[in-house]
Amino acid sequence: MSPIPTPQDAAQAGHPAPRSVHAEDLAIPHDDAAHLIRMANQIATAFRLEPEDKAITAMREHIGKFWTRAMRERLKALATAAAPDLDARIRRAFG
């Protein structure tokens, strides 16, 4: 059985490390896209220790189960447009 990847491995594999959305202190512009990207990235982070195929299944299942259709459609649009801030695995799962 292959060893469990560490966060460092995950980073090397091209998954962005979690990052603060607060680019600057006191700046939380209300931005729906940023909000969805952030929620999606949090979910991607939660599954980042899983192998890619398992993680993609888990993320699709999770978002499919809890997000509304409208939110999923917007995420798909962001993923398809390869929104730069969106986690690579989310882009692959929903793009």
């Binding site: 469990i4 966060p7 979690p18 990052r19 603060s20 959305v21 607060h22 202190d25 952030r38 982070t45 939660a46 599954f47 980042r48 220790l49 899983e50």
Partner: peptide, 16 residues
């Protein structure tokens, strides 16, 4: 279930 620790985005800074 896997439970990797991920620090919150809510970071303390010099300002906060």
């Amino acid at each position: 279930m896997m439970t990797e620790y991920v620090a919150t985005d809510e970071k303390v800074t010099a300002r906060f």
